[in-house]
């Protein structure tokens, strides 16, 4: 998170956050939703260019927990599919 150099070789793979596999890290590109639910995501730290990692699935696969700026936060798929991220390949 500290050194952007860690992610030098950025592959331009874009996907929605709900599709980001467990253990993978991605960079937030944009949010698709509007209004209060957009604000909530922003407040959680899902702002463009911030780093997010899929931490774990709940037993039923929905919600999914993400590491966002040091806290583990669970989002329902309905929410996370509004977040477009770029997959980062760590070397």
């Amino acid at each position: 998170m500290k050194c952007d150099n860690c992610f030098e070789r950025i592959n331009k793979e874009e996907l929605t956050l709900n599709k980001l596999p467990v253990g993978k890290t991605a960079k937030v590109k944009t949010l698709l939703n509007t209004g209060i639910s957009r604000r909530r995501l922003l407040d959680l730290g899902l702002i463009p260019n911030s780093i997010v990692k899929t931490e774990r699935l709940s037993p039923s696969g929905n919600p999914i927990a993400y590491n966002i700026k040091g806290a583990v936060i669970a989002l329902r798929k309905k929410e996370s599919k509004n977040v477009i991220v770029t997959l980062l390949h760590e070397e």
Binding site: I36, S37, R40, V72, I73, L75, R76, E79
Partner: peptide, 10 residues
């Protein structure tokens, strides 16, 4: 429909 919801796992 259910509204948005987030849950922290501290």
């Amino acid at each position: 429909i259910p509204s948005s919801f987030t849950l922290e796992l501290p």
